[in-house]
């Protein structure tokens, strides 16, 4: 009887589906919605999504997702970096220039920036995990730090990318009720798109392929690797994709 019911169920669904009228695809409308999604995410929507190569703090940078300052983990001294989690010889940050702290950042943001850079340069995944606490996660599987470790182990590490992203010019997002977030590269937090300058292009091409940069320009949005730190020093995300 079950088989009979299953077959009838399949037939019923197929019959129903066959009556669905299908209008021609409108690629322009798809692209328009894609821009809208991207803008929403950049302006405050959840940064969660489907990309499989992403690390992000779930609170992300949204209005709805922002925690109050009292809930933010304290920004303390840099975690110990004496025991690298990954042997230096296989670390993706080996040989990548360690950037120097840019001027003009708020003290809490500057502290976190330096801690991230120190940990990435030292291949200290444990320190990075501590900086992100339990908030840092990957899209979908919530195992961001595991992914960082795995990528390093498998030879597709992103710590070098992290250092290069931190070396880019920073930008500051809008004031969200007394809270701001700082983003690297700057155009990752820019609300409106403007043509890339040669300097911006050069910065991006230190960690993104030219074809990817071309896609950003074509889409008029940036969705490559980016880092965000909230004004209270909370590391929000290290993420790529949407």
């Amino acid at each position: 009887m079950d088989m009979d019911l299953e077959q009838q169920l399949t037939a019923a669904l197929e019959g129903r589906a066959s009556g669905v009228p299908v209008a021609p695809a409108d690629l322009g409308a798809v692209r328009s919605r894609a821009r809208s999604i991207r803008r929403r995410r950049a302006a405050g929507g959840a940064v969660a999504g489907a990309a499989v190569v992403a690390l992000v703090v779930p609170v992300a940078m949204g209005l709805g997702g922002l925690r109050s300052a009292s809930e933010a983990p304290p920004v303390g001294p840099a975690p110990a970096t004496s025991t690298p989690s990954v042997p230096a010889k296989v670390c993706s940050s080996t040989g990548v220039a360690k950037p120097t702290l840019p001027a003009g950042l708020p003290p809490a943001v500057a502290t976190t920036w330096q801690q991230i850079v120190d940990a990435a340069a030292a291949c200290d995944l444990s320190a990075l995990e501590a900086l992100g606490a339990d908030a840092i996660t990957s899209y979908g599987d919530k195992q961001g730090i595991t992914n960082l470790r795995r990528w390093e182990r498998e030879g597709d590490g992103k710590l070098g990318v992290l250092l290069k992203v931190m070396a880019t010019t920073s930008g500051v997002g809008p004031d969200l009720g007394g809270v701001r977030f700082y983003g690297w590269p700057a155009l990752s937090v820019r609300h409106t798109w403007s043509p890339l300058t040669s300097a911006e292009r050069a910065e991006l091409e230190t960690f993104q392929k030219p074809s990817e940069v071309a896609s950003f320009e074509e889409m008029q949005m940036y969705y490559g690797w980016r880092v965000g730190i909230r004004s209270d020093g909370t590391w929000l995300y290290f993420v790529a994709g949407d």
Binding site: V30, A34, G49, A50, A51, M219, A240, D242
Partner: peptide, 14 residues
């Protein structure tokens, strides 16, 4: 479907 395709478009290169 429109939203699905838009998200796919954003991730197409990946």
């Amino acid at each position: 479907v429109q939203t699905t395709l838009a998200k796919l478009y954003l991730a197409w290169d990946k």
